[in-house]
Computed example of a mutant assay.
Amino acid sequence: MKQLSILIVLLTIFLAGCKSTPQPAVRLKPELLNENIRVGIYINEIAPATTSIQGADCLLCYGVAVAANSSLSNHLESLPTTDIESAKQVVYDGYKSKTQHVEFVNLSKDKLSKLKKFKGELGFAKKDYRSLKSELNIDVLVVLNIYAHGAHRMYSAYVPVTDPQGYVAGVIYSVDLETNQYVQFQRFNRKILVEGEWDEPKQQFPGVTNAYYQAVEKVKLSLGNIFL
């Protein structure tokens, strides 16, 4: 009986682990695309660049880390978003090479979050996007979500363990609105080391700024490579 109980516990842990398995990358499936497929591209609202702090787990630690990097964050927030915004054109051009029917679509901020959950295996979206097929008159929905960009810095409690790095993180995925299957799925988390001293005088941070723009270009390159 004791062995049976242990077996049940182990099985429960195993199944729980299966449920939490992250979605792996899905290479673009050209067989699911043709010149008649209607593609809609949704881009999340991209906030200004800033410093992303990780590892400062307590509230006080995080507050100390944010304050210590406030000058850098203020500088990053002052940068134009033109370069990072141009990532959407890379995605548009990529899909335009596969089909003639490509457009940017508008969705309210909470539209995607309010979609019902979809019970499917890996390779299928966790939200049920199928209702958007008729609503938007498209066959494939592409979502580009850039949720962090600027600089990245690791902390241990309130002590920095790395210098800031150029940083862009997000995800791009494409969903077949007939089946809710991923046509493509890719996360990106690009960090670029700063050359030389990062804490330059006069709070202009040229090293961090240059590393950030390099990270943006690397991400745009990886987005373009989706369609090769």
Rank of each mutant, 00 (worst) to 15 (best):
V102G: 02
Y42Q: 08
G17M: 07
Y213K: 13
K117V: 13
E195G: 09
G170C: 00
Q181C: 07
D139F: 01
I192T: 15
C61I: 00
D57H: 02
S222W: 03
Y129L: 08
Y212A: 06
N225S: 13
V64H: 04
D139V: 03
F205R: 10
K114M: 13
V183S: 08
V9A: 13
L122G: 09
E200M: 12
T209A: 12
R190L: 11
L4N: 09
P206K: 08
T12L: 13
D176N: 15
L136N: 03
N44R: 14
P80W: 03
S5W: 10
L132V: 07
L177N: 10
R27Y: 11
A16V: 09
D110V: 00
E45K: 09
A47K: 15
S71G: 09
N74G: 14
W198K: 09
E103W: 03
G170R: 01
D139S: 02
T50P: 00
N34W: 01
K88S: 14
V39Y: 02
Q3I: 10
A68S: 15
I84M: 06
S134F: 06
C58F: 05
P164H: 07
S78N: 12
K218W: 11
E200T: 15
R130W: 06
T179I: 02
R130I: 06
Q165W: 04
I172C: 10
L193H: 10
Y158T: 01
I46L: 05
V39C: 02
Y212V: 07
T81R: 15
P206F: 13
Y155H: 04
I146P: 02
R187G: 03
Y95R: 00
N180K: 01
V105E: 04
K220F: 08
L141A: 06
P160E: 02
Q184K: 07
V171C: 01
Y95N: 04
L132P: 11
N145R: 12
A151K: 01
T51F: 07
D110P: 00
K191L: 15
A87F: 06
P30G: 04
E103T: 10
T179E: 12
T179M: 01
D83T: 10
E77T: 10
A65D: 00
V140D: 04
